[in-house]
Simulated scan of single mutants.
Amino acid sequence: MERVLTERGRATRDRIVEGAARLLRERGVPNVGLDDIRAATATSKSQLFHYFPDGKSDLLLAVAEYEAAEVIADQQPMLGDLVDLATWHAWRDRVVERYAAQGDRCPLTALTAQLGLADPATRTIITRMYDRWQSHLADGVRALTAAGAIPPGADPDRSATAILTAICGGATMLQATNRITYLEVALDDALSTLGVGRG
């Protein structure tokens, strides 16, 4: 049964999770212990275990949920309103801008590379995040098709999957090389195939 927190308790828990997320992005999961998180978030040991009874495993799942939400939030409000070409172009620019600014400390990298896939619960969080992301993109393709803004016949789910894969592949290469061009080219090619390119 999920614990019901007071407003103050929720704020404290959120502060711990956000502080832990920042620290884990900077140092990586293997290099961060609970004492590091306590020091970075000015949290006592009793507080930490009050909100995360199983210690680091509980906290890492909470951080995974936080990072998954951040991946989607970083693309809003455009991602949830892809109803015309102008919004698609603005969303594309937001994606490139955010990943260029964050580099290998982006929420997606923290979620998939730092937190890893070994824990089935973390894998479930990541899968839900990808499903939500893909759903927004597919809805956007349907909206453009209905408005006659792109050629008819596009498969919304397939197109959304191609766009999402382009972003994630580009983000992986950005992590390894610190070059944003991989993401830009892959995303632009995926959008151009759909008919959403600027050219």
Rank of each mutant, 00 (worst) to 15 (best):
L108A: 13
T109D: 09
T109L: 10
A110R: 13
A110P: 03
L111Y: 03
L111F: 05
T112D: 14
A113Y: 07
A113V: 14
A113K: 07
Q114K: 11
L115K: 08
G116F: 03
G116V: 06
G116A: 06
G116M: 08
L117S: 14
L117Q: 14
A118F: 13
D119V: 08
D119N: 15
D119R: 09
D119W: 07
D119E: 14
D119I: 06
P120I: 09
A121P: 03
A121M: 09
A121Y: 04
A121S: 07
A121Q: 13
T122G: 11
R123N: 06
T124L: 08
T124I: 01
T124P: 00
T124G: 08
I125Q: 04
I125V: 15
I126T: 06
T127M: 08
R128T: 07
Y130E: 08
Y130L: 13
Y130F: 13
D131K: 05
R132L: 04
W133I: 00
Q134Y: 06
S135R: 15
H136I: 05
A138R: 10
A138T: 06
A138P: 07
G140I: 01
V141H: 02
R142V: 07
A143L: 00
L144Y: 04
A146T: 03
G148H: 03
G148V: 02
A149H: 03
A149D: 05
A149R: 10
I150T: 01
P151K: 05
